[in-house]
Computed example of a mutant assay.
Amino acid sequence: MSGTTLPTPAVRRSQNPSGTPGGATPGPGADGRGSRASAPVRRSSLGKRLGPYGYLAPVIALMLVLMILPVAVVIRYSFFDNVIISPTSIVVGLKNYVTILTDPAFHTATKNTLVFTGVSVAAHLVIGLGFAMLLNSTLIGNRTKTVFRTIFVMPWLLTVAIIAILWRLLLDPNGVVNYGLQSVGLIDGPVAWFSELNLALPAVTVMNIWAGYPFFMISLLAGLQGISTDLYEAAAVDGASWWGRFVHVTLPSLRPVIISMALLDVIWTSQQFPLIWMTTGGGPLDRTEMLSTYTYKLAFSEYQFAQAAASAVIMLVIALVLAVLYVRHQRARD
């Protein structure tokens, strides 16, 4: 017994590297636990990646059903003829677009839309900036500012239907506007503002200006309140007049807000439909015909749905161009 050499622990471990008795192979409790534990980890990481899409799924579904599919259907209709009213549709390619672009009524609607949009946006900017500077002035007390702010914002609180009815009553031949103008001797008799050929477009433009300037006013007022008073004090020290401070301090500081608001207002005003339809309906004749009312009449008065679809696609392209300009400006601003 004394001559027998027993193996050392290191030798025993080398002969049985698994550490199990008798050199048995490792069971599922060793490596098996690691493989089973990795599966929940993979499922957890996959769930984290798909989680945000799950939250966005309802919005994506709504956009798909309410926006993308209708737009796709309208684009498809613009390349066909006899859509909706006939069981068989004929592919005509770009014929509907050629018909729309060569239609004199489309040219008139485009011209009226440009005039209506350009004058409205410019007036919104001027009136909104003027009222915003008035509300931001230190020469008026806080109570007076509160009263003015309530009065100036009032048009924005009214619905389109109420605005249309209100202005129809005001500009009625027997309305308040005619009575006041006759009282001061500016007109000799009642004027049908929405029926006169040369007055209908200015009338609806004034109505749209009154309804839309509060949005500019509130946005520009927020921009004015964000301008540091140190800039005005430095300009005053340099001897700048009120006009000089306005040109060299106020306008450059408000430039990003003005450009953003102008682009948004162009998009909204060029697609204005309810105010026009509920006051003049595009008349008299075609003096207040806009692209929106022109497209609507093609579809639901003349039942030319394919041509109406082509007109709608043209309006969509114009809106997309303006939207791209707006997004690019916002990115450059950021």
Rank of each mutant, 00 (worst) to 15 (best):
L197F: 08
L166E: 00
G175A: 01
I165E: 06
Y179G: 06
Q182T: 10
F194H: 14
I165W: 07
E196L: 13
W193K: 14
G185C: 01
F194W: 14
A164P: 02
P190G: 13
W167F: 03
F194G: 13
L170N: 01
L169W: 08
L186T: 02
G180R: 02
L197A: 14
G175M: 07
V184P: 00
L169I: 08
I163N: 02
D172L: 03
V184Y: 04
I163S: 04
R168V: 10
L197G: 09
V176Y: 08
L166Y: 06
F194P: 15
N198M: 03
L181H: 04
G180E: 05
N198K: 12
V176W: 13
V191G: 08
L186H: 00
F194C: 15
P173D: 06
L171W: 06
V184I: 13
P190T: 08
V191H: 05
A164Y: 02
A192R: 15
S183K: 12
G189T: 14
N174G: 06
L170P: 03
L181E: 00
L169E: 03
L170M: 08
S183M: 13
F194K: 15
V177A: 07
P190N: 14
L170K: 03
W167C: 00
V176M: 09
F194R: 15
L186D: 00
L181C: 01
G189R: 13
E196C: 11
Q182P: 11
L170G: 00
L197M: 12
V191R: 09
E196M: 15
I165R: 13
R168T: 14
D172C: 03
P173A: 00
G189L: 04
L197T: 13
P190R: 10
V176F: 08
P173F: 04
E196N: 15
Q182R: 15
I187G: 01
W167L: 05
A164Q: 02
L169D: 08
P190A: 15
G180T: 07
L171V: 11
L166P: 00
V184A: 00
L171N: 07
D188S: 14
G175Q: 10
R168Y: 07
L169Y: 10
N178L: 09
P173H: 05
N178A: 04
N174K: 09
L171P: 11
R168W: 01
G180L: 10
I165S: 07
Q182L: 09
V191M: 10
L169Q: 06
A164E: 01
